[in-house]
């Protein structure tokens, strides 16, 4: 058993970030579940992205397109060679979503700050309310990397070939007892349950709740392998709208080094509404 992460270079610690606050080659990006948290104080020099107002298309159900992504990076002072470090609240949940989107458009130098806001504040490190402005950068995005994004047809193929699907929602959502996360009724679906054949590995089990830091490689490997999710097969992770599963995608791809992992951002709000889609209810596997 190998006890180190497969690609530790995608993770930075709070100490590293503290030592690079004024590094022009590094851009810190805060991405939170709470839309106002950045404004109450953030790591000095960090810019904000909001998954709804910054990263989503305002009309269609989709995230921003390639040219909008280029404009976003340019405005945040992110060039193609900038090292972008994401962090945020709630176990880096939305930070991982932003990371996934940047990876989709081919940004090469990406990091997650281990522990996120929680660990940074626990360590009494500085926060600032100053919103920085950086000179616009030139940015050219790569064509979308379809290898990390699953569409519904990919999920159906996964079901038909009995390949691993990881459902990272709460156990109640997985069994079909709930049609939505507790108190998130507007993210519901017509049907409850999980994609036929999917295993349940709730997203937050990959993180230590005390400080938001990822669990060790050995712990993570046990978590996924015990459910039959192995590196030699393509894996698709999903949740309700594709954000919690971004964290699982990050864990599988970078911390455990699974070569073929996709995030299904349509997730349950698409699958549970899709006519004829194969669904199972109950405790499953």
């Amino acid at each position: 058993m190998n006890s180190v992460y497969a690609h530790p270079e995608y993770l930075v610690e709070t100490e590293w970030v503290a030592a690079h606050l004024n590094d022009p080659a590094v851009r810190l990006v805060e991405s939170n579940e709470d839309a106002l948290l950045y404004e109450t104080g953030h790591i000095p020099g960090a810019v904000k992205v909001d998954w709804f107002t910054t990263l989503q298309d305002r009309v269609r159900r989709d995230f921003i397109n390639q040219s909008e992504f280029e404009a976003l990076c340019s405005g945040l002072g992110i060039a193609n060679d900038t090292t972008v470090v994401f962090y945020g609240d709630k176990n880096n949940w939305f930070a991982c979503y932003a990371f996934w989107l940047f990876a989709y458009y081919g940004h090469r130098h990406l990091r997650i700050m281990n522990g996120g806001r929680l660990k940074w504040t626990q360590e009494n490190r500085p926060l600032s309310k100053d919103v920085p402005a950086y000179p616009a950068a030139r940015y050219h995005a790569s064509p979308p990397d379809r290898a990390i994004r699953a569409y519904r047809d990919d999920v159906l193929r996964q079901v038909e070939h009995h390949l691993p699907l990881v459902d990272v929602r709460s156990p109640q959502e997985y069994t079909g007892e709930l049609l939505h996360m507790p108190n998130y009724p507007q993210e519901g679906a017509m049907r409850g349950g999980h994609v036929a054949g999917a295993v349940s590995i709730p997203w937050a089990t990959a993180v230590n709740p005390e400080n938001g830091v990822f669990k060790t490689a050995d712990e993570l490997r046990r978590l996924f392998e015990s459910k039959g999710v192995l590196p030699d097969q393509e894996v698709i992770a999903y949740c309700r709208i594709g954000e919690r599963s971004s964290l699982t995608w990050f864990v599988l791809k970078y911390l455990l080094g699974y070569p073929r992992v996709k995030n299904y951002d349509g997730s349950w709000t698409e699958w549970g509404n899709l006519v004829g889609a194969p669904i199972e209810k109950g405790p499953g596997q």
């Binding site: 106002l36 948290l37 404004e39 109450t40 609240d89 504040t121």
Partner: peptide, 9 residues
Amino acid sequence: PAESPTVRG
């Protein structure tokens, strides 16, 4: 909690 300003609002 202070870390949930939206809900505090």
